[in-house]
Design a binder for these strands. Sequence first.
DNA 1: TCTCCGAATCTAGCAACGCTAGGAACGAGT
DNA 2: ACTCGTTCCTAGCGTTGCTAGATTCGGAGA
Lengths: 174, 174
Amino acid sequence: MIIAAARELAEAEGWEAVTTRRLAERIEYSQPVLYSHFKGKDAIMAAVAVEGCADLAADLRAARTSAPDASRAIAEVSRAYSAFADQHPALYDVMFNQAVDLPFATPGAPAALHAAFNELAEAVRPYAGDDDLGLLTETFWAALHGLVTLMRGGRLPREAHDRRLALLLARFSQ
Amino acid sequence: MIIAAARELAEAEGWEAVTTRRLAERIEYSQPVLYSHFKGKDAIMAAVAVEGCADLAADLRAARTSAPDASRAIAEVSRAYSAFADQHPALYDVMFNQAVDLPFATPGAPAALHAAFNELAEAVRPYAGDDDLGLLTETFWAALHGLVTLMRGGRLPREAHDRRLALLLARFSQ
DNA sequence: TCTCCGAATCTAGCAACGCTAGGAACGAGT
DNA sequence: ACTCGTTCCTAGCGTTGCTAGATTCGGAGA
C-alpha cells in the first residue's frame, strides 16, 4: 500500500514531491509508520523500482512476442522501451537514473529486472553473430537508455527521437 | 571563485555534500552572498556544468587530433569521453544527468557545449555515410552516455566496459 | 474478570536544507 | 560633514528525512 501510494504520487508529481509527510498523509497514517515498514525513503523508492521493472518487462515481452519477425521485434521492443520511459518518467527515473541501492548486474538482482533484461536480449539475439549476447544486450540497452534520458533531460530534441532510434536500429540490426 | 569552490567540493564529496552553507563557509563569506551572485543553487550548478563542458571539449579534441586515422580517432574520443565521466563523476552528473536549466539542443546553448558536441561529430563524420551527421552524432553520444551512466549507477559491471565500448564502436564505425 | 505484556501508532522534536528579510558597516560623491 | 548606494551579515522561515518517548489497544494468563 505504501509502495502503491508512493508510485502514484511520484507518477503524478515527480519524486521531488514525494516527501515522507505527504506519503504518510496519503496512506492516512503518521510518518513514523513508514519507517517501521521500510528502512527509509530510499527503500521505498527501491521497492517502487522493482515494481516498475516488472511492468517494463511485461511491456517489452508484449512488444517482442507480437512482432512477426526478428527485425520488427527489435524495433518494437525499442519503441516499447522508449514509450515506457516517456509515459512513466518518474518510474523510469527511480529504476535507472537515481541512486537507489539495488543489486543490479549480479545474481542477487530482482527477478523482474532479469526478466526485462532478458526481453532485450531475446530481441538482440538474432543480431548477435559471434559477439557475446550479454555484452551486446548491455550495449544496446545503454544506447536506448542514453537516448531516453538525454531526451527527457532536454539534452536532445524530442521531435527527432524516432529518427535517432532508426539510426540506432540500423547499426545494431543491419 | 564561487564556481571553483562548488566544483572542488562536488568533485571531492559529490553534489549532495554541496550545500549553500558549506559553500559559503568554503569561500569565507556568509550564505546570502551566494544569492547576490547567483539566482540559486541551480544556477551555481549550471555554471559549473558549463565549465565542465569546456574541459570535456578540450579532452575530446586532444584525443581526436592526436589519433592517426579516423578509426583510431573515434575510438580515442570514446575512450576520452568514458575517462572524463569516470574521473569527474560529479562534473559529469551536473552536465548531463541532473536537471539544471541550461539550454541544450538550441542555438542558445553555451559555446563550450557546442564545442564538445562538434568534437564528437568530427569523430563520427567519416562513418556517417548518407545519414544525417547531427542525428548520428546525437545517437552515438547517447550510446556513450548510456554506457557511462549505467556503469556509474552500478547497473552495468565495470570490468566489461572496454568490451562494451568495442562492441559499440564495431557497430558505429564498421 | 482483572492484569499484564507486546505490538502498533502518534505527538513532538532534531538537525539540516534552500532561501530571504532587515539592518549594520563602509567607501564615494557633494 | 553628511548622505547615498553597495556589500555584507545576523536571524529566521518553511520544509526536508528521520527518531525518541509516550500512548493506546488487543490478546494471553491468573
